[in-house]
Amino acid sequence: MTYQRPNFRHPNLPVNELGYTRKDYEGALSTLCAGCGHDSISAAIVQACFEMSIEPHKVAKLSGIGCSSKTPTYFLGNSHGFNSVHGRMPSVATGANLANREMIYVGVSGDGDTASIGMGQFTHAVRRNLNMMYVVENNGCYGLTKGQDSATADVGSASKKGEPNPFEPIDLASVALQLGATFVARSFSGDRAQLVPLIKAAISHRGFAFIDVISPCVTFNNNPASTKGYEHVRDHLAATGTVDFVPVKQEITTSYPEGESQEVTLHDGSVVHLQKADPELDINSRRSALRLIKDYKAKDQILTGLLFMDEDSRDLHEIIGTSNKPLRSLNESDLCPGQKVLDNLNESLR
């Protein structure tokens, strides 16, 4: 009896610009239930970081508590990580980010972790436009504590327990839009082709990049009466369009039909190309996104894909004018610039 991953990989695994293979971005073997959507999201993060040639030591993974929040152990094993307290990941992320603005912050949370106990924390991270990717692995339940309905469960949706949920759901993408998030997307753990470019774009975005990923809990919430099971989600899926992430160094080779596509340039010069399925969508308009989410919901459809993006986003550091270097790189003369500087400062305040 063995449950361990062999060390061998495909002999022809491609290497990225850093000379790393996908294996270098893997983490420990997952202990989640077999078939959990969360594992797919981990694999998508591995894929995205590999393809972007991100140096693993430049990433900090942050999470709260839940099956979803356990997943940072299962990807980017060579990166930094902080598995914090239930619902408190945004505070830890804020602190870390303020101390070192040069890291890439990957926050992973659950619908319980974010929409219930962590709601207050979440809202403030959004409105401050903290520079991070914030992924909610949304299964409509508290997986880790055996599947109680969460605040994102739809009215009438029933988990394995069989009791339909009586309460209005919180739609986290809409909340994020309303609170000023500068990048909002929704996806499905089972749609790797869509999720990977979204993650790449979210990582490249400067500011709060929110992705609500529907991620079925196979054990407690994958029954026919649930609106967050594989079958229901697949049957009700609609997409804003196909998303292409074109990194800075790469030429845009695909040609896109006029009118049906929209292009957004990110801070680092990379480009997100959205081939729109719905002409109603304007990727730069919050209102368009909010309305479409509602419209699709009314049609009993789940709208996925890139929903909104603010190209002129200014993140927390820019807004409050912090040090442009990580705090750890400030030396004594930076911190105590001397009598002359103090005199000048005092002078300016007279």
Binding site: R9, D39, S40, V218, E231
Partner: peptide, 14 residues
């Protein structure tokens, strides 16, 4: 098969 991707992701040799 429910197409959950679990096998695809776990397979060490793709």
């Amino acid at each position: 098969c429910i197409e959950c991707d679990a096998c695809i992701d776990i397979c060490p040799t793709d």
